[in-house]
């Protein structure tokens, strides 16, 4: 059981470096196709990587037995959520539909959509799941 715990954290020390190098690389790669200034692109790439890292760390935080760094990961995750909502306030949105004018519309929609999906699936659980040999037993009646 000694593998459990963060003994490999030493090897991960390269990650924070990548965390700052990647946005620049991404911005440079995609520059020339957009008209936005480079600092905005770097910021956007940084935010995107921030979100991705938060998602990966959330998986670590949800682990059982609980990860040593769970609190740090969760703090990082909630930090990223707040940053995303704040960033959304400064963005010029392309409005196609009325509801997109709502502040943090995507955040609200993402959350409520996921809750709806899970509750709906939970409702389906009343009659969809069957034993693993259901068809073998039901389909062969009369033999």
């Amino acid at each position: 059981m000694k593998a459990i715990g963060g003994k490999k954290m030493g090897q991960m020390s390269g990650l924070p470096g990548a965390f700052f190098v990647c946005p620049v690389a991404i911005a440079v790669a995609s520059s020339g196709h957009t008209h936005t200034p480079i600092w905005q692109e770097i910021l956007l790439a940084f935010l995107a990587i921030f979100g991705f890292a938060a998602y990966v760390l959330l998986c670590f935080a949800g682990e059982e037995p609980r990860h040593r760094q769970k609190k740090v990961f969760l703090a990082f995750y909630f930090c990223s959520i707040v940053v995303m909502v704040l960033a959304g306030l400064f963005v010029h949105w392309h409005i196609e539909f009325g509801w997109q004018k709502l502040p943090a519309f995507y955040a609200i929609y993402g959350f409520s959509a996921c809750v709806f999906l899970i509750y709906f699936a939970k409702g389906l659980r009343f009659w969809l799941p069957k034993e693993e040999d259901y068809y073998e037993r039901r389909g062969r009646r009369g033999e």
């Binding site: 936005t36 959330l58 959350f111 409520s112 996921c114």
Partner: peptide, 19 residues
């Protein structure tokens, strides 16, 4: 890679994971 698209998508995904 427009700002609204990147931020909107990241918001959507992060809040879905939050749920």
């Amino acid at each position: 890679f427009t700002a609204s698209h990147i931020i909107g998508q990241t918001q959507l995904l992060l809040f879905a994971s939050l749920a």
